[in-house]
Design a protein around this nucleic acid. Sequence first.
RNA 1: GGACCCGUAGCUCAGUGGUAGAGCGUUCGGUUCACAUCCGAAAGGUCAGAGGUUCGAGACCUCUCGGGUCCACCA
Length: 922
Amino acid sequence: MKELPKAYEPKNYEAEIYRAWEQSGYFNPDNLKSAGEPFTISLPPPNATGTLHLGHTVMLALQDLMARFWRLKGRKVLWVPGTDHAAIATQNVVEKKIFQEEKKTRFDFGREEFVRRVAEFAESSRGNIRSQIRAVGASCDWSRERYTLDNGLSRAVREVFVRLYNDGLIYRGKRIVNWCYRCGTTLADDEVEYKEQKAKFYYLKYGPITIGTARPETKVLDKVIIVHPDDARYKDYVGKEFDVPWIDGTVKAKVVADKVAEMEVGTGAMTITPAHSFVDFELAQKYGFEVVEIVGPDGKLTRQAGKFAGLNVKQARQAIVEELRAKGLIEKIDEEYVHNLSVCYRCGAPVEPIPSEQWFVAVDKPFRLGWFRRTTLKKLALKAVRSGQIKIVPDRFVKTYFQWMANLHDWCISRQIWFGHRVPVWYCGTPATAPKLRMGFAEVVIPRVLGGMTKTYRIHDHYFKVGDRVAFTNSRRQSIFGYGTITKVERSAIKDIPLADPLHKASYKSLDELLAAFRRHYPPTEIITGETEAVLYTYTFKPADQAGAQLGCGRIIVAVDEPKQCPHCGGIKLTQDPDTLDTWFSSSLWTFSTLGWPERTKDLKTYHPTSVMETGYDILFFWVARMILMTSYVLKQVPFRTVYLHGMVRDKQGRKMSKSLGNGIDPVAMIDKYGADALRLAMIIGTTPGNDFSLYEEKIAGYRNFVNKLWNIVRFALLNVGEPKAVATPPQPRTLADKWIMSRFRAVAELVTHKLAAWQFSEAGEALYDFTWHELADWYLEIAKLEGGKDEILCYLLTQLLKLWHPYTPFVTEVLWGEAFGGQAGLLMVQSWPTSLPEIDKKAEADFAPIREVITVLRNFRTEHKVPPTSIIKVALEKVPTVVSRHQKLIEGLRTKATVVAVGDPAWERIKVSEETVISLG
RNA sequence: GGACCCGUAGCUCAGUGGUAGAGCGUUCGGUUCACAUCCGAAAGGUCAGAGGUUCGAGACCUCUCGGGUCCACCA
């Protein structure tokens, strides 16, 4: 006989229990005796600087549930924990902090110092999230803890980058990207969120045609109007060119017909701004229109915007609208226009499309995988799911996954922030000497340029200014063959260009010959006539091989480790690309980089592919899809066999939890108040994968009550059992109640086992909850008080029940296990799952049911007739199963205080008590 | 525009073709005897609506209504 405290106080045990688990070494599968098949989970790494929120708690509870279940089932369980450097998010946090505390920006510190400070901050706050993960009870292997920015993972990142580059799947290009002015960086397509917003929509007179726009400030240099080919209104204009009085002087506009213009939208006509719209950029590529940047990366208008240069977007819009108004070009303004404003998912500031030189992963480009297969990254990622190698729970997300994959564009992976994995790319030369501006030359003319040609004609303005330092590059190879400074910029119609200019080495006999020369270098779509305006650049020239030793050859070096010298020219002044990588690039390698890749480690061989990826459906695209894509490419393996997606936590009204609503619940406070076990139950029972669920304090309190019930079940047993011991095999039941509970236990144990293996955690938990409280506690324990002599059975049920509950409520079950069986039984977390189960006894279950019913009926009878608790009643029952009369004592003892005279009837259906059946009240 | 989810007791939600469920709340009753973080009872349902499939539908199919999410587009 042993006495436990009356109520379970989680605070008194949890820390100590976790310490015992950790010290046992069993979180590390190397220390598990089991030889079973490994079961691996990679913990979706929380942000290093984060604090535990309910989303984390959900994933920890579910993953720990799986880990503990399979560990008890004898599998070699590895759960790899870690944290994510969360590049933009972390940098933003630190920038904000530094600005508040010291009124300084990152530029005041310089890159190196700033990164050091961010890293320091991340390091110092990482301990916080670690201890909070422990507080939930997560049985992850801390000896294998990783960080996305640690040496091993950084190496994996560089290795993958280099491989992709060598396979031609990473390229650098000037493309329209999403640009966040506040963060000063690009964002991937899915890092942009949309907010519906009312804005002004301007109808502007653009020559004879009215166009609509919400962003007049980008329209300064628009010179192409797109209309639908079938649009009768504009039929006569198509293909025509005309002068249009516009924002900054007159522009020559032409009208092009293309089906992208929808007749119903606005006026059906639009001007295009290739530099500031994804669609327009595509059109510009299609038709060869010039891409002119109006808004720069600083959010201010560029010098191409003429007199508006230097104004920020907001000022420029005002000024330009004013200008348009003054010129009478505004037809009307729609004030009620609703459109989706693009905003940064990290900081909420507006995001604008601008052209920028960035690194991309080509998802649609064919490459050779292994010896035989030609495929694309997108195809690989689709196949992994379509082939069934990866199962998604719930499976409706398969459809979502395919849809997203189908829409996936090349992935912009470079970011202009400082904190993160630096792009493993070096340029031969330094920023000071290697000019930013480039002028490309066709291969055939390079020898002539090298021969001293210092004047070049172009029909597109590159906006070089006198004094600009320019690198001259081979357009095909992208290599620099010379350097120089612009000394003169002139404009002239082609027909007015002197046919023989001493600075322009080539001379022409006739205008036709000059025009032919132009046409050779521009696509056939360009209409080049004598009237076409050309820009004539004059410059100084120094060949690269002369300047090379100091300046570098400008070529790109992509390498895992920092190169000492340029493999192309031997130059030693190498400059690393300033960009860092999208944080999801490193997380996409998470399942295998954490196991030691690129080394061929034993862990990698043993534990990869991982068994399950458990995470919220909100990062199916951000993360899960990218892991599938990258792992398929790098390892030719899936990263995980099953994806289990949990829903989002909402408040009682179903609203998202947010700071502004103030409806958030702090999981740490809840653990403090109700215990980790109660919180875990509240998040597992009553929830289904893929569906959001509500969480509120009363719910957690309810499960706290259950945990306490479990405690008291064991407390009762220990008070009644002489010598508590763990019982592995089911003892022989003696009474009907014994047979009934043993049979029920078997049914529940099997159900729980089956449901847990089938990812149906809620149903398993519910069944176990109901059995524990409403069968075992409410009925069997009451009967045990009457019948006595239950030591063996109670010990057996206790032993097995604690195991079944352990995955859900590890703390209280471990405490109880220790209290009941002491140290000799070892830790509960490494016991074996119940396998030796009692027999199913259908007859006992069938016999017990009417007894239970009779008791309930009699209790109701007492209540209805207001029989005082002390009174004994005598009741005659008719048409009840004969078994009832054989269990007089049971019925009387279970708080009915009734003597039953039962008339047995084998054909009984329903038991009823009416006043007529009552013989007497005693 | 495309896709998806949800609608079941007052509230929060389970329910994988076979007798409508749980927790909380409400009402009534209970002072020792494991637990008031408890025990015993009760009330409470056109399973959003309409049609269909089936011996049988809360579940499967079609449509409608209401609430929500994601993606695409956004001149």
